[in-house]
């Protein structure tokens, strides 16, 4: 693992909100990041079904996309979200952890483009998909 990826990992693991949601970074390399978020009752959005709130999935997606940008070899430093769109394809199964995988597929001098999907244990049927643009910092 390169030292830049190491720094990115330390940075991501220190984010207070990600910690509050119990996020675990399981993969980080060359513009790809995988982050897992365990099921937790405090994240429920629909008390009747126990389904996790979309907002918690947004937080996971945002963190994962940002991590992928930071781990991209052409991005020298930090990043911030410019915009992020999330499509919710189905409700995540209550009790199951959610895993997001983000790919930073293109980087210009100033902007990084990212795609991500989130799944529960049924990995063939995504729960949500995201596309976003992020800043590229520390260059110009």
């Amino acid at each position: 693992m390169s030292s830049k990826t190491q720094i990115a990992r330390q940075f991501i693991e220190a984010i207070p909100h990600s910690k509050a949601l119990g996020m675990q970074l399981t993969e980080l390399e060359d513009g790809v990041a995988v982050i897992e978020m365990p099921y937790d009752e405090k994240l429920v959005g629909d008390p009747e079904t126990g389904v996790i709130h979309g907002g918690a999935v947004s937080a996971l997606m945002d963190t994962c996309c940002g991590a992928a940008v930071m781990a991209h070899p052409e991005n020298p430093g930090g990043t911030a979200t410019i915009d992020l769109r999330i499509d919710y394809m189905r409700a995540a199964k209550p009790g199951q952890r959610i895993t997001a995988r983000a790919t930073c597929y293109h980087v210009t001098r100033t902007v990084a483009f990212v795609r991500a999907t989130a799944t529960d244990e049924d990995t063939d049927n995504p729960v949500a998909a995201a596309t976003g643009a992020f800043t590229v910092e520390g260059r110009r």
Binding site: I15, H17, S18, G54, A59, G78, L84
Partner: peptide, 18 residues
């Protein structure tokens, strides 16, 4: 616990979206 960037500090983008 809403912080996303401890260096700035700034609210987490996911919290804003939520």
């Amino acid at each position: 616990k809403l912080i996303g960037n401890p260096m700035l500090p700034a609210i987490h983008g996911g919290v804003t979206a939520a």
